[in-house]
Simulated scan of single mutants.
Amino acid sequence: MAFEKSTLKIPSARAGWNLDAWQFLPAAVGASKPLAVVIMAHGFGADKTMGLAPYAEALAGIGYASIMFDYRRWGTSDGTPRSLLVVKDQLEDYRTVIKYARQQPQFDPQRVVVWGSSFSGAHAISLSADASVNAAAAVAQCPYTGTTPSLPMSTASMEIVASAILDIIKQALGLAPLYIPVVSDPGTVGALTTAGTKAGMQAIFSKETEYKNEVSASSLLEIGPYQPRAKAAQINCPLLIVLPDQDNLCLPQGAVEISKATSKCELVSLPCGHFGVYPGMSHHTDSIAAQLAFLMKHVPA
């Protein structure tokens, strides 16, 4: 799959903070017609080096451009404190990159696609329901929709809650955040501790960078109030949800609710767990095939 990859620095909404992005272009770019472009970002506690490039490469192979970026405070983008998740800021970063893409002459401003996986899948759903974004289509792979496993009462869960509260206090005082692991074994302190999650995340750890398995503890308080499935009736562009039906991290129920609430949503169910759709896993090829077929149907390259 021939493609051209370059690095971009896109000014974020916060003055002085740039978003670090990779741009993928099909190798054979015709001058007569601007390209459809897919805007992509990573999931919870990850960065753009972790398993996203194969999607962009597959898209380039059939004529789509893509821009893949790190949020503020994550990866190689600017911003402090590091490893802090703010849903409002992440959605704003998507809008910033979408606006940037629309200003580039090689891209068709009417054929901008929003793509996300896991927690960024939540953003793809939310932005598909935002009329001001005016996306041509959206793709959400194994998305967080607002349904998650209950946190069992244990010493570890009480320590997680205490860490989140202490982190809020520390940051309010101008001190460094209190960090906990992004992924950890079940029954231990961490943001994501469901069975198989640590191994799944480790499988997509990048060899390009040294991954810091940490997130500010108070970031967990951003998750519960964020309910993308509540916006299902407002979705105003074609939306594909690739749903691992054995997902124990982002529970399937919310995605099913979205598909029933709007005719705009196409649901493709795959017999695997959350990480089964990622590169090198059992149903990655199936997920890619569904995404390419969906895009060729609704936003032809």
Rank of each mutant, 00 (worst) to 15 (best):
A131C: 05
G200N: 11
K48I: 00
I62E: 08
Q227H: 09
I168M: 10
I125R: 11
S259V: 09
F107P: 04
S263V: 14
S150D: 13
T145K: 05
P34K: 13
L127F: 00
K33G: 07
S218P: 13
A261W: 09
Q227E: 12
P109N: 13
S216P: 00
L243D: 04
V277G: 04
K207Q: 12
I169S: 03
L239G: 01
M296R: 15
V112I: 15
F24W: 14
P271C: 13
V268W: 00
A301N: 10
S184D: 10
A124P: 01
P244I: 00
S132G: 06
Y144P: 05
L35E: 08
G187F: 15
Q106M: 14
A233M: 09
R14L: 12
L240C: 07
Q253A: 14
Q253R: 11
K260R: 14
Q141C: 04
K9Q: 13
K99Q: 10
S32M: 06
G196Y: 02
E257S: 02
E159T: 08
H274W: 06
A136K: 12
P238L: 06
P149E: 07
A232P: 01
S218D: 14
S118T: 07
I160V: 15
E222I: 01
A255Q: 02
A176E: 15
A199T: 00
A15R: 11
Q104C: 10
L240V: 03
E210T: 15
I223S: 02
H274S: 05
K231E: 09
G224W: 08
S6A: 14
K48F: 01
S259C: 13
N236E: 11
A58E: 15
A15Q: 10
S184A: 14
S287I: 04
R72F: 01
D93L: 02
A195Q: 12
A199G: 00
I180H: 05
E4P: 06
S157L: 09
R14V: 15
V113Q: 11
I180Y: 03
